[in-house]
C-alpha cells in the first residue's frame, strides 16, 4: 500500500540521501519523491511516497530521528496516529 509523507527538512547537503537510505534500509519501496526549496532556501519541502506491506509507523518513527527532519506528517487519514 502507498503512503504519502509530507516532510519539512533542513536543507543540508546529505538530507535527501539520509531520507532515502533509511527508507531503503527499513524495507520500503520508493514510489515518488518531490522536493522544492522553501522561500528562504534553508529548508526543503519534500513529498515522499513509499509502498510497503509493513506498518508505516516503522518507517516514520525512524525518519523522525533524523536530525535534519523538522516535520513529518502522513498525508490523509493516517495523519492522526503519529506523533512520536
Amino acid at each position: 500500500m502507498n503512503h504519502v509523507l509530507n516532510i519539512t527538512a533542513t536543507n543540508t547537503p546529505a538530507v535527501v540521501e539520509r531520507l532515502l537510505q533509511v527508507t531503503r534500509y527499513r524495507g520500503y519501496e520508493l514510489a515518488g519523491l518531490e522536493l522544492t526549496p522553501r522561500n528562504d532556501a534553508r529548508s526543503l519541502s519534500i513529498t515522499l511516497t513509499v509502498s510497503s506491506d509493513k506498518p508505516i509507523h516503522l518507517l516514520t518513527s525512524q525518519l523522525h530521528k533524523l536530525y535534519d527532519i523538522q516535520q513529518l506528517e502522513l498525508a490523509g487519514a493516517e495523519l492522526a496516529v503519529l506523533s512520536a
Binding site: 546529505a14 540521501e17 537510505q21 536530525y67
Partner: peptide, 14 residues
C-alpha cells in the same frame, strides 16, 4: 566519508 557515514552514525557533518 559523509556518504559512508550515513549507515553507521547517529548523525554526521561536513
Amino acid at each position: 566519508v559523509l556518504g559512508l557515514s550515513l549507515a553507521v552514525t547517529k548523525h554526521s557533518f561536513m
